[in-house]
Structure formats: structure tokens, C-alpha cells
Design a protein around this nucleic acid. Structure first.
Lengths: 205, 205
DNA sequence: CCGCTTTCGCTACGACCCGTAGCGTAACTT
DNA sequence: AAGTTACGCTACGGGTCGTAGCGAAAGCGG
């Protein structure tokens, strides 16, 4: 959402229109895909004038980022008792999210667009990426509390390791799902988690 | 690159036009990005009529796949003496390839498009993905010859492990480069390789 | 209650790109 | 030489883009 701060006079923007637009965007994205998704189509579905759309989002890509971002808030990290179980759980969850047609088509297209648009990349980072990275930090914290992982005194090194883990988990799941186009089932999640945690032990030492 | 075989009469298609089109596509892709890349622009740059383009490629996405595919042939796996060195080398190489503006924007956009187009996905698989997977198989073969990895008698399990490794390597590098937008330098490659090989040991057992 | 400000829906518009059809010409096969 | 196919060129209807202008509606200030 665009933070509108210095406008306290006049007619306020309709919050219903906002949610209707984002909802319509997700629906149209799932049915039509990225390339056939047009601003006019979204406006019609939302019951809103096309100009209203352009008053809030300058481009299709930014609209889609906002529309899809909320879906990533569904990702949770329930305590399953062990680090391995936690990782397996989030892998399955993330894969399920990527199976949905809205997200699978949107995520790649938006990242592709962001290679030429620094502002869009920043938006993706704050709206989507950082929300996932939070899970990595939480999972590590829990594992350290359980005594499964040692506490790393070097803050910079700890941050680098967290980034590495994040890239490996998210990257592998995305690649498996969207490029290899093969399912992320229980078995794959278990094997992958074993690989990750086993490797983590050798990096830590 | 459509394999036309059953036409032995009449004027043959110009091979120069083919290479000019693919070259023009790569150049335009690097300068304009995916969304602003038009068929007319490519035709103009290649010095070719727009209709000639459509006679060979039905859509922009398929053209781009063919244009970018040859770049992935640059990937090599020189024998660096150890499995770790081989992996580090291919990681650096792959990351360097993804740094090029033609490839970084093309790969994501094409994958995004492929979520709605099964034929395109197949084309990506044969033109790009399988050519990379080949490197994984070669690297494992070498490591087994060196005695660094045990030979897996179970063929199915060996294939699953190879797929897993492939998804982890390619996924992590892509995610690091395009989503996290941070550099894949020597240090990252070294740490990542340690993670991968260390984990591989625990999976094998 | 009434002006002020901003947003809303609507229409229209030029610009661009799409993908195709038709034509005459060029190139290669037999 | 005859046949067949690819080529460049032009033109076209259809669609989307992003913007401008309008009058009406909705909240805020007095």
C-alpha cells in the first residue's frame, strides 16, 4: 500500500476500492496469467474505473506485488519440536504457496521485471522477501534455544549464514517447483532438509 | 531453431537471418528488458521483415528461449582436481552468466510465462535446463572416479539425488543473484559448496 | 449548513504493438 | 525452364496503454 500522509483534506480514498482491486488482481492473475493480465481487465472486475487504478499504482508490476504480498503473510512457523521438523514444515508450506496459480506466475514475472527497475526491487524486498527471511531467523532462534545449534558470537558471520540458508531454501523450492516442475512432497522435503542441516553442521565448525 | 526436415524443395530459409534475429534479440533484451522488447524492434535490428519473425517463432517467449539458450552452452566443467573445486567453479560461472542483462531478465520472464504454457516449459527444459543438469552428472561421475563419492547402486535413488543437487545449486545461485540481488563472490561460493558437500555426506549415508 | 478540496466514474483520445493477409520478387530444387 | 518456397513490403482491424478532461460525489473545515 502507498503510504499517503500529507492529505488530510478532501475526499479520502476508498479502502473498499483498494481491497477490491487487489482481490480482482489476484483472481485475474490466476485465470489469465501475467502476460494477458491488463489494467482494464482488473478495473472491470473490481468495479472501478481504470483511472482509479493508475492513480494508485503506476504500473502493472507494482500492483501485482501488492496484490500477492499478503499471501506470503500466511507463512507461519509453528513449533514442531525439532529444527528438522520446522524446516520440513516451512518447505512444504512454501511449496504449497507456490503451487497456487496467482503466486507462481506472479513471483517470477515480477522478479524478471525488477532486473530493470530498482524501485520495484525494493518494493519486492520489503513486501515479500523480508517477510520470508523472518522465518529463518525465528527458526534459528528456536533451534538455539533447544540447543540444536550453537550461538554464533560473530554477528556478521551469523547474518551471512542466515542469508545463505535463506537463499538455499527459497531458491531450491522455487527451482524445484517452477523450473523442474516437480512436486515438493514429504519425501523431497525430508531429503532436502537432511542435506541442509547436515551441511550446516560442516559450515558451523 | 525449429527443426524443419520435410521441406527439400523451394527456397531454403536463410541461416543468416536466423543468427541475425537471435543476435538482435539478445541485444535488444539487454537494452530494453523483457516488457519493452517487441517483435517489431527485433525485426528492425536484425534487418528483417516482421513477417519473417512470425514464420519461425509463434511468440516472443519462444524466440527468447532460443536466443538465450546458446549462452548456456558456455558453461563448462573443467577438471579442477577436487569435487569442491569443481562445484565452486561452476557456481561462479553460472552466477557470471546470470549477471549478464540478457540472461537475468530473460530467464525469469520465460519461466514466468511457462507456468501457463506447457509447450514453452518443454522447450525451456530441453534448451536450457537439461544442458545444465548435464554438468551435475559429469561432476558426480568425476568425483566417483576420484573416489570422493561412493557409487550408488540404486539407479532411481541416484537420479533423485542428482535432481536434488541440481535444484539446490541452480536455485540458490539464481535466488542469490536475482532475488536477494547480492553478489556471488569467491567467499559465498566457498561457503555454499561446503554446505552442499557436507550435506551430501549425510544424505548418502 | 456551506465552501473547499480531493477522489470518483466516465468518455475520449493518440500512440503503440499485435498478428495476419496479400502481393510481387528472390532463391533454390529437379 | 518450371515448380516451390522464403523473402520484404505494405496495410489492416483489434487490442492495450497511459493521459486528459469533465461533472458528480464524498469528507473536512468553518
Amino acid at each position: 500500500m502507498v503510504a499517503v500522509m500529507c492529505s488530510r483534506k478532501g475526499r479520502p480514498r476508498s479502502a473498499e476500492a483498494d481491497s477490491a482491486i487487489l482481490e480482482a488482481t489476484r483472481a485475474a492473475l490466476g485465470e489469465l496469467g501475467w502476460s494477458k493480465l491488463t489494467m482494464g481487465e482488473v478495473a472491470t472486475r473490481a468495479g472501478v474505473a481504470k483511472t482509479t487504478l493508475y492513480r494508485r499504482w503506476p504500473a502493472k508490476s507494482e500492483l501485482v506485488v501488492d496484490a500477492v504480498a499478503v499471501l506470503f503473510d500466511e507463512l507461519e512457523l509453528p513449533d514442531r519440536g525439532s529444527l528438522a521438523a520446522d524446516v520440513e514444515g516451512v518447505v512444504i508450506q512454501f511449496a504449497a504457496l507456490l503451487e497456487r496459480p496467482e503466486t507462481k506466475t506472479a513471483l517470477m514475472a515480477v522478479v524478471a521485471e525488477s532486473t530493470r527497475d530498482e524501485a520495484l526491487r525494493a518494493r519486492i524486498r520489503t513486501s515479500i522477501v523480508d517477510r520470508q527471511k523472518r522465518l529463518v531467523l525465528l527458526g534459528r532462534e528456536r533451534a538455539q534455544t533447544r540447543g540444536e545449534l550453537p550461538r554464533e558470537p560473530d554477528t556478521a558471520k551469523a547474518a551471512r549464514t542466515a542469508d545463505l540458508i535463506f537463499d538455499v531454501i527459497a531458491g531450491a523450492v522455487v527451482h524445484r517447483t517452477l523450473v523442474s516442475a516437480e512436486p515438493v512432497d514429504e519425501e523431497w522435503a525430508r531429503t532436502f532438509t537432511a542435506l541442509l542441516l547436515g551441511g550446516l553442521a560442516s559450515v558451523q565448525s
